[in-house]
Write a protein that binds this DNA or RNA. Structure first.
Lengths: 352, 352
DNA sequence: GGATTCCTGGTAAGCGCTTTCCGCCGGGTA
DNA sequence: TACCCGGCGGAAAGCGCTTACCAGGAATCC
């Protein structure tokens, strides 16, 4: 008896219903049982089919996914790698992904890196060990050649093992769901310019993140096109969190009190900025200071004043990313998802 | 050649590094290789150990989790069943769970039921097929005997197959992480009473949810203990969403304009209530109407006025639930996690 | 009418790993 | 010197499932 658990298993014999048992119960070969229950390409006669189905029902058969995975060398699991699932940005993406996964009868395994790129690599590796059907990278990468290369190597290995890969936002990985960070940022900056703001500040996320760099580039591009100035001291980097936003805003206004508008690179930070400006600094929004966010997470509309922000169709992005993976084919470039500036109460014309 | 993929695999022979290959490369038996790489109980001599490790590294070996799962009949996957991962309540629980999972080197598979109890059962079944090590039920159940029984049956089957189960909040499933919904609700209601409110309204979630019933029971208990009245028409049920909260509040005030305070049964609904009261109805909070939420999700503090709410330690609950599962032992009853009323700006004394 | 297809059911060879034996070897012990 | 014991390596039997291949029987074709 090579496997000691077989003893154990005999004890709870009711629990471990195998295909074998079903086949015996139905009086057919296990090949036939397999064909009926896991639908191969072959047809099975009406009578036997019935018998097998009845037996499976009677015994309460549930297939053994690992065994199937081993035999078929493929699973129905997709891995989703995010920075932090409690962040509404990633939660929205995950929700979309899970919705699509349900349609495709896939299970979603989520791994949170908490911003650590090493962990991201480790998780891809782990997903490879799981023989996940695909991995979906949701978070922005960092602009580090070494890390990028190591991740790429891991992804290649994953693909070599037959897995698919997709990601949200451009990241040097194909296929991906395009997200126009730059364009959205340009639009936001342009809006501010049109409202008459000339001295704006930027509350940015971690400097290394590609997403941050893109959004920042969009702002810079728009600003210089319009003829404005954006000195480095008006751009402050912090964590992509509420307190990061609050502290960054405080720092920004301490150094540059004359700023009339601040662009936060995501809504969570914007919430912090709003708190800093109104509660800590006692300035009114939007009369004295305008604030713009990014992402349009669900609570943006509930901030006071409600937040003007760049809407990113996050749920849809999540869905698409899964489709990309599931549809087997076409890593065909798709139309970028529409980003739009949602103008709400936190922005207004610059004070006379 | 029984398996057609073996042909395919031969093609990508670089990708599929098996233990077998590692063993050959190292010049040892696969038993030894297994012992070195997957740490059995037996010791392996220094020299061979080295050889195996080198071979594994050179070849880029990654173990095949499904194969291991089959051989050991156990995995390192835990399933987490939530209603909706985009809801900050569940996102927080998930974040905690994933943090703990990382410590225990477990992978988390998340399934979203979108409130459908049938789906919940289906997912438990699916997790059973995956031979998940455990399943963690995060959402509230519905108070339906049939559904409850069927879920219980599925969970028993899961356990019979060797899986563990735990859940957040009492649900007739052991072990569980106690969450004092009732006590929290009592505290919130009491606070309102002490502020002088006598005519309060409740904006509740779906009537069938056990959590909703508990919270409601807490409010009713406190209210009747204090000597107040809470007629049914001042309790309105709706979806646990922002728009559910908004519409419910609108309905509540249409029927009972004299209400001076409303208790929303979660913060997301409270955001909707705040919008309805201030924007749609034009009443001031807290001067004319006080609003209390539940859960203390991250954005509660950013609502205007910032939301008075009952804090539930959600992340911690998620962590504990995973620990319960991982610690093998002790389904010992633990001290309930502390709930606390966080008084902020949305509540005030009843208008003279 | 005999040979060829089809169709459908069964047999059995793996998928990649774990773990039980078994055997060998060196060192105590009697 | 004979014997036993502890350590360490390997052979091999599965874990539960899929599927190529085979084998009859019925239907089809000259």
């Amino acid at each position: 008896m090579p496997n000691p658990r077989s003893t154990t298993r005999a004890t709870r014999s009711t629990g471990a219903v195998t295909l074998q048992r079903v086949a015996e119960h139905a009086g057919v070969s296990i090949a036939t049982a397999s064909r009926v229950l896991h639908g191969g390409t072959r047809t099975v006669g009406e009578e036997l089919r019935r018998k097998v189905e009845d037996a499976a029902r009677d015994l309460g058969y549930v297939s053994n996914a690992p065994a199937q995975a081993l035999a078929r060398s493929s699973t129905s699991v997709v891995g989703l790698v995010v920075h932090d699932i409690a962040d509404p940005y990633f939660a929205a993406i995950a929700a979309g992904a899970m919705r699509a996964a349900k349609r495709h009868r896939l299970m979603v395994m989520i791994a949170a890196t908490f911003g650590d790129p090493e962990l991201e690599i480790e998780y891809v590796r782990s997903l490879r060990a799981q023989r996940a059907r695909a991995v979906l990278l949701a978070g922005s990468g960092v602009a580090d050649p070494d890390l990028t290369a190591r991740l790429a190597a891991e992804l290649d290995a994953f693909r070599a093992d037959g897995g698919r890969v997709s990601c949200i936002g451009e990241r040097g990985v194909e296929p991906y769901v395009p997200l126009d960070h730059t364009g959205g940022a340009e639009r936001a900056a342009t809006e501010l310019w049109q409202l008459g703001h000339r001295r704006i500040g930027v509350v940015a996320g971690p400097e290394g993140l590609v997403t941050v760099q893109r959004r920042l580039a969009g702002i810079r591009a728009a600003w210089s096109r319009l003829g404005g100035e954006l000195p480095d001291r008006r751009v402050v980097f912090a964590d992509f969190t509420r307190s990061g936003g609050r502290e960054a805003a405080l720092g920004l206004f301490a150094a540059e009190p004359g700023v009339t508008a601040v662009l936060a690179l995501n809504d969570v930070m914007a919430a912090g900025v709003l708190a800093a400006v109104q509660d800590d600094l006692g300035r009114r929004v939007p009369e004295e200071v305008s604030v713009v966010g990014f992402d349009d997470v669900p609570f943006a509309v509930d901030l006071r004043p409600s937040l003007t922000t760049v809407r990113l169709p996050l749920e849809e992005a999540g869905e698409r990313a899964v489709q990309l993976i599931a549809d087997g084919a076409s890593p065909a470039r798709q139309a970028p998802l529409g980003v739009a500036l949602v103008v709400r109460g936190s922005t207004g014309p610059v004070a006379g």
